[in-house]
Amino acid sequence: MSDSPPGIADLLGVLAYAELTAFLRLAEDATRHAPSLTDRAALGGLAAVEYAHFELLRDRIASLGVDPEEAMAPFVGPLDAWHARTTPGDWLEALVKAYVGTGIALDFYREAFYREAAAGMGEETRSLVDEVLVDEERSQFAVERVRAALEEDPKLAGRLALWSRRLVGEALSQGRYVAEARPALAELLAEAAGGEIGKLVTRLTEEHGERMAALGLTPGP
Score class of each variant (00 low, 15 high):
E144G: 06
T125L: 08
V178F: 04
L200V: 09
E111Q: 12
S139M: 03
A214N: 04
R126Y: 07
G158A: 12
Y177Q: 12
W163K: 09
E187V: 08
E123R: 00
K155H: 13
R115K: 05
V143L: 00
A193F: 09
G175Q: 05
R159M: 10
A118D: 14
G169I: 03
G169K: 09
G120R: 00
G158H: 14
A214Y: 00
A186F: 02
E196R: 07
L189I: 07
R110G: 11
G194L: 00
A213L: 11
E170Y: 01
L215V: 03
A117Y: 08
L188Q: 11
A148K: 10
R115N: 07
R145W: 13
T218I: 05
L156W: 06
A118T: 03
E206W: 05
R203K: 14
I104N: 06
M212P: 01
G169W: 07
A171H: 08
L189Y: 00
R159I: 01
A214G: 08
G120F: 03
R138K: 13
G101Y: 09
A161G: 14
L156P: 15
T102M: 10
Y114S: 04
T125F: 07
P154I: 01
P154H: 02
G195I: 05
R126C: 03
M212E: 02
V134T: 12
D153W: 07
L167T: 09
G175L: 00
D107F: 00
F113A: 04
L106Y: 15
V129C: 02
V132A: 05
R176N: 11
F141T: 09
V178S: 04
A179W: 08
G122A: 13
A105E: 11
S164Q: 05
Y177D: 10
A157L: 08
L133C: 04
W163N: 09
M121P: 02
E191G: 14
Y177A: 14
A98I: 04
D153Y: 03
Q174R: 13
E206T: 09
E144N: 08
K199V: 08
E210Y: 04
G120Y: 04
K155R: 14
W163Q: 09
A214E: 12
D153P: 07
H208Q: 08
L160Y: 12
G209C: 06
V132W: 14
L188Y: 01
V143E: 09
L204W: 00
R203M: 15
V178P: 00
V132R: 00
V178I: 12
V143M: 01
A118S: 13
